[in-house]
Design a protein around this nucleic acid. Sequence first.
DNA 1: TGAATACAACTTGTATACAGAGCAGCCCTT
DNA 2: AAGGGCTGCTCTGTATACAAGTTGTATTCA
Lengths: 228, 228
Amino acid sequence: MSQTAKQQLSDHVRFSVLSMHWAPGQDLDESTLSVQFGVSRTPLREVFRDLAAQGFLELRAHRTARVAELGHQTLREFFQAAPMIYAAISRLAAENRHADQLAQLSECQQRFQQALAGSDPIARALANHDFHRQIAVMANNRYLLPSFDRLAIDHTRIGKTFYRADADRESPQIACQQHDDMIQAITAQQGERAGQLAIDHWNLSKHQFAQFVMPEGLSDSLGLGDNA
Amino acid sequence: MSQTAKQQLSDHVRFSVLSMHWAPGQDLDESTLSVQFGVSRTPLREVFRDLAAQGFLELRAHRTARVAELGHQTLREFFQAAPMIYAAISRLAAENRHADQLAQLSECQQRFQQALAGSDPIARALANHDFHRQIAVMANNRYLLPSFDRLAIDHTRIGKTFYRADADRESPQIACQQHDDMIQAITAQQGERAGQLAIDHWNLSKHQFAQFVMPEGLSDSLGLGDNA
DNA sequence: TGAATACAACTTGTATACAGAGCAGCCCTT
DNA sequence: AAGGGCTGCTCTGTATACAAGTTGTATTCA
């Protein structure tokens, strides 16, 4: 059925963008993809529009669709918005979560741990992506979700870009422990603590990023302060 | 030219939704609108998809497009997210604004004052909408904007719903003063103050809303606390 | 030789025709 | 008489053909 074809196309584009298999700014060809997935250009263009609205792609009139850019201005805006949104999401998740969602969150964490054990950085980034998105769903707030999703896209892409297995071996383990702590806080419905843990989690990410970009160590010349 | 027709269609739908001329949940007919604006169903459906992504409409497979719902669950989520996003937007606007944008903001405020002087509540709501969106643009953060826009849609619709000219004559004047204060804070690049003013502005809105829904006065049983 | 312009090939945007899913009304059955 | 299923209609979803715009190239003139 064609609904499946559209879904497959959408999944394929999302995966290709998140995994950086398609580079930021890369052009996409409508006709090639349409024959590749067995759908005509009309539904394909609808999928493109949806993905553009979610922040995966960029559409310009009379020009080819391209993968969303990821420049230095983007990075600055990213680190300004991310801690705040993630903290709010985490706090609301602790307040609004339902019991059956907790099991799903634990499953996400399990998959993340498995990915940590493995050697595939893409699988790791995607598992992390799924973990945080589950929290976002549990926050149950339709107004915060669109911003979260846009952040999550670039979070995953940035993580893929700035991850260096050689440089920082303990960070993944710290992140994993922080995930466990967050599950605990959300389970216990401790909103404030969940929010603080999200901020701690971000300080770790910022540290990793700062180490990559500026090994010398001026970690606070980008974005805001520590937001703590 | 057809680009104009699409734009006119999009503007018409947006206005109709924001002004509550089209009620939440109302069904829309593709073919009627397509002949009305002289475009075929293909571009019309693209406009619908864009507007759905922005939160104006809701699309369900094999069912008619409808105006986004606005129920009590929506309201709760709204008041949970709005103060935080608006405070962040205002703070960033103060930090990132450019000089030429300040003049545009003042123009928005002038139009808002003119609308206050008039008797049209829709014009008033739309002028308020434009004022706050100008601040959002000045914040210059692509991640916060989508959430802001979704909030702004329902902010305007809620304002239209719960505005009573008879009950609260001084609130509009207070809001107007708060707008002036925000212009001042943003001009002086006082981020913290701008954020606090946004929260004050929201407490006023929540007060108006609480008065309407629960005249008895249990203003804190919805949403969060005062966020101050 | 360099730049500007016109032309050609290709890509995106739109219209229309058709296929398929949902829904309402009617008839048949119990 | 009431409930369930069938049939036909309407509206959404998709394909394809066509129109319009953009880009690269070649040719001509300064």
